[in-house]
């Protein structure tokens, strides 16, 4: 019998620092640094400019100040300090070497934006119930496995199926079992009108 700790007690684990650029506490990814002003070399003597011919006052009047330089940001970067709070619990996460992600696409779909707390609950519950020891110990890393299921109004996961296999049967199985182990996610929010919610869950495995 091995003396390893059970890693799957469905209870608190040490808080995971999310590296998510949108959901962490830092205010943004791209930290705009103060622009460096070119230092003048102290001993340098400016070469006097050649005197140009004055062509009358007219010309000097027409001279315009050079346009101010506007710092160009890449569109997906958030300037430092301007990120603000996250509007929903979505985005991508990395934790250690493991990756996961949440995205939401919908038909009529405002479920994710209205009931973010429910989506979060689903994610938490599935990850709690995924027992990694069921996976073949020889596997170090695997392709992502996609599981599809539906959540009924009462919160039961139904129609669970592998949508895209990882190519490793024990990983597919363990992912399926994680869902099958769950009795309920809790009833769907009463304000939600649909009969069920379709969920696509992906599992990334790194040992």
């Amino acid at each position: 019998m091995s003396a390893t700790l059970v890693s799957s007690i469905p209870l608190p684990s040490p808080p995971v620092e999310t590296q998510n650029v949108l959901a962490n506490e830092s205010k943004g990814l791209a930290q705009s640094q103060p622009k460096e002003t070119p230092k003048e070399e102290p001993k340098a003597i400016a070469i006097p400019e050649r005197e140009t011919k004055h062509k009358g006052q007219r010309e000097s009047r027409q001279k315009k100040p050079p346009p101010k330089e506007v710092a160009k940001l890449e569109e997906n970067k958030i300037p430092f300090g301007q990120g603000g709070p996250v509007s929903g619990p979505y985005g991508s996460f990395t934790a250690g070497s493991t990756k996961g992600g949440l995205s939401f696409t919908g038909g009529t779909g405002d479920f994710g934006s209205r009931f973010g707390w429910y989506v979060d609950g689903v994610r938490r519950k599935v990850s709690e119930n995924w027992l990694k020891y069921e996976i073949d110990p020889r596997i170090d890393a695997a392709r992502r496995v996609y599981i599809y299921f539906e959540v009924t109004r009462s919160g039961q996961p139904v129609n669970i199926r592998v949508e895209q296999s990882s190519g490793i049967p024990s990983l597919d199985q363990s992912a399926m079992r994680a869902l099958q182990r769950i009795d309920t996610f809790g009833p769907l929010p009463p304000e939600y009108a649909g009969n069920y919610v379709a969920v696509e869950f992906w599992f990334d495995y790194r040992r």
Partner: peptide, 17 residues
């Protein structure tokens, strides 16, 4: 069949609310 979809992932550790 317009039905809401959630895509979500795991392996993230169990964090508290």
């Amino acid at each position: 069949l317009a039905q809401d979809w959630i895509r979500t992932g795991t392996g993230l550790g169990v964090e508290k609310i």
